[in-house]
Structure formats: structure tokens, C-alpha cells
């Protein structure tokens, strides 16, 4: 392909609305499109798309491709890929942005391979190089111990953006944009994977990735029981409970609790870690927290290099007193 131009965001719809990660992608894409002096387009996929289309425009898109097909009503990876590939070929963008959500983890690499191009994976920051006009992507590697700056040698340049790396733009209802209907052809035989059962294991209450306060426990808790104390504390603070991979691997809590590189990315205002050493793979999921608090008996633990406040001490002594004081303060 030649004459590629503009930025194309591949969006997704959650319960009838354009998803939060799609709004984040629009913010990242708006910056790139403005640097290039080119158009920002978004593809939304589904059966009915009026609401997400207007949300996309008020959040920064110049153009919306409403990609419709009855098979797109519910997410199915093989179908979604066919639609995305068709749209990229139609729109012929210079840059394609995908969210590195659970779905994006499989869509972005497979799309890039279908297009025969590279993928800048799990990026925290994307920009346009002023001299070459090429995409520059910063991405954590080696579990977050290092950062790589990469560029793409082939076009389109595809990047997957880590959720919460960008803040959505303020909605502006006066923004103008164009909505283009793009019906795709999908052959039902392209469906390979069938979901036969769905099992929910999430804790009740506030969702971990939306909580303003998160209390997480790690290996040092020594078993599943102490998590009930963390649940109580989180409830006092109006927050949610998370865990390190070590706690999940030990079977103390389900994997939906895991914060980190291979778990959830969280950006709470307050992140309280209890008996978590703070390996870079864990920090990769919480480095966007505004304030990190560490409760750890090891004064050499890495978490103390990341935390704003820390108590060096045994959680069994610290937590009950801390929780009691929190209860008094919150009830005041």
C-alpha cells in the first residue's frame, strides 16, 4: 500500500458505549494526528453504533467508521480480526492504535501479522518523530526493568497502548466529525473459536481497575486468611482488594485479583501494598498509582524504592492498628 495517511484507532463498545480504553486511544491518537497534521479516525464494530459514534467524535475523532455486521454484535476473535483487517485496508492509515486490553492482547499481534507489519507492543507513550514523521513508541521491557524506544519499519505502523497510559480528552459536544458506514463481509466459517461457558470469579463491590483506593496483599501474608482483613480495610476506604502474582500462584485469591504486567493495570489515588516485595513485574501494573504505601518487614524490599510512605514492620502488628485508626478517622 502507498499513500498511507492519518491515524486509525480500533475501538470497542462496552454495554452500548464506546469503552474507556477506546477514549484513551483517541487521546493518544489525537496527539499523533495533530503532530502529523492529519486526520484521526476510529473504527467501531458492532450491530448498532449510533451512540459510540457520537461519543467518538466528542472525544476527538474526525471520522468514525461504523463497521457493521450481525456477527460483530458479540465479540468473537476470528470475526473481529476479519473486520479489523478489512477496515485497515479501506482506511489505509499511516498509524494504527489498538488497546492492550485482554482482547487487544490477542487482536493486535494477530492483526499485525496479517498485515505483514510489526507491532510496538504494550506502549506507555507514543509520539511522532519530528524529522522523519515516524511513530516513536516507548515500551517497558524486561518486566519493566528497562524501557525500549522502537519504531516500525513497515506501514502501517501498529502500536498497542497499555490501558490507563493516556487520559481521555474532555467530551466536547460541539466537535464535528463524519460518520461513515462500512459494512464488512464475514463468512461464518471463519469462526474457529467457540466460547462454550463463561465463569465469573470477581470479588463483589467496586471493580479493581476502577477503584480509587486499592489494598493489595502478597507472598508475605503467608496464606489466604489475611485477605479478609484486607477486604475489611478496603471496605472502610471504599476501595477494592488486589494481589501480587505470588498470592495468586499460591491459590490464595483468584487470578482476577492480580495486579501487574500479566494481570490488571490500576491507577488508584492510593495504593496500599501489604507484604508485597515490589518486583518490577508487579510495579508494571501499579506505577500509575498517585500514592503508593508499603507495609513490609524488609527495609531492603524494592517496594520501598517505589513507595511514597512506608511502615517497616510485620503486617500482623501493623494492619490491625492501622485498620482501627482508619475506622476512627473515616467515621469522624
Amino acid at each position: 500500500m502507498a499513500d498511507e495517511s492519518g491515524v486509525l484507532v480500533l475501538g470497542d463498545v462496552a454495554a452500548g458505549d464506546l469503552s474507556l480504553t477506546s477514549l484513551e486511544l483517541l487521546a493518544a491518537g489525537r496527539g499523533l494526528a495533530d503532530s502529523l497534521g492529519q486526520e484521526l479516525a476510529i473504527g467501531v464494530f458492532g450491530a448498532t453504533l449510533d451512540q459510540p459514534s457520537s461519543q467518538a467524535i466528542s472525544h476527538g475523532a474526525d471520522k468514525v467508521y461504523a463497521v457493521t455486521h450481525p456477527l460483530l454484535a458479540d465479540y468473537q476473535v476470528d470475526v473481529q480480526l476479519v473486520a479489523m483487517e478489512a477496515l485497515v485496508k479501506e482506511a489505509n492509515p499511516s498509524i494504527v492504535l489498538v488497546a492492550r486490553t485482554n482482547q487487544g492482547r490477542e487482536l493486535a499481534p494477530r492483526l499485525a501479522f496479517r498485515l505483514g507489519v510489526g507491532l510496538a507492543q504494550d506502549c506507555l507513550e507514543v509520539s511522532v518523530d519530528a524529522s522523519s514523521g515516524k511513530l516513536l513508541a516507548n515500551r517497558p521491557v524486561y518486566g519493566g526493568n528497562a524501557v525500549a524506544v522502537v519504531s516500525c519499519n513497515y506501514s502501517p505502523q501498529v502500536a498497542a497502548i497499555r490501558p490507563k497510559a493516556y487520559e481521555p480528552l474532555e467530551a466536547d459536544a460541539s466537535r464535528q466529525g463524519q460518520v461513515v458506514s462500512f459494512p464488512v463481509e464475514i463468512d461464518a466459517s471463519q469462526v474457529r473459536c467457540q466460547v462454550v461457558e463463561t465463569v465469573k470469579e470477581e470479588a463483589e463491590g467496586i471493580k479493581l481497575e476502577d477503584a480509587r483506593v486499592v489494598v493489595s496483599g502478597g507472598r508475605g501474608l503467608g496464606g489466604p486468611e489475611p485477605f479478609s482483613a484486607l477486604e475489611d480495610l478496603a471496605k472502610q476506604l471504599g476501595g477494592a482488594v488486589g494481589a501480587s502474582r505470588a498470592a495468586v500462584d499460591s491459590g490464595w485469591v483468584p487470578s482476577s485479583y492480580q495486579v501487574g504486567l500479566t494481570g490488571k493495570t490500576i491507577t488508584p489515588d492510593l495504593y496500599i501494598t501489604v507484604a508485597i516485595s515490589g518486583a518490577s513485574q508487579h510495579m508494571a501494573g501499579c506505577s500509575g498509582a498517585k500514592v503508593i504505601v508499603a507495609i513490609n518487614k524488609d527495609s531492603e524490599a524494592n517496594i520501598l524504592r517505589e513507595a511514597r510512605y512506608a511502615v517497616v514492620g510485620d503486617w500482623e502488628q501493623v494492619i490491625p492498628a492501622f485498620a482501627e485508626a482508619v475506622r476512627e478517622l473515616v467515621q469522624e
Binding site: 507489519v117 528497562a146 524501557v147 527495609s299 485508626a325
Partner: peptide
């Protein structure tokens, strides 16, 4: 398909304040 332009270790600038107390429980308070 990709070029690696740079590889570096990110700087950590966080200054941690260690909260002290008479004992661990007091530090918690």
C-alpha cells in the same frame, strides 16, 4: 519489522518517607 532505537533503565525519583512509631502497631496508627 521493528527498529530498536534506544534501551534504558528508567529513573526512579520517588522519595520514600518511613513512618516510625513506638512499635509496629503504633507506626500503623
Amino acid at each position: 519489522r521493528l527498529s530498536l532505537l534506544d534501551l534504558f533503565v528508567p529513573e526512579r525519583i520517588q522519595q520514600c518517607e518511613i513512618i516510625e512509631g513506638e512499635d509496629a502497631a503504633d507506626a500503623g496508627r
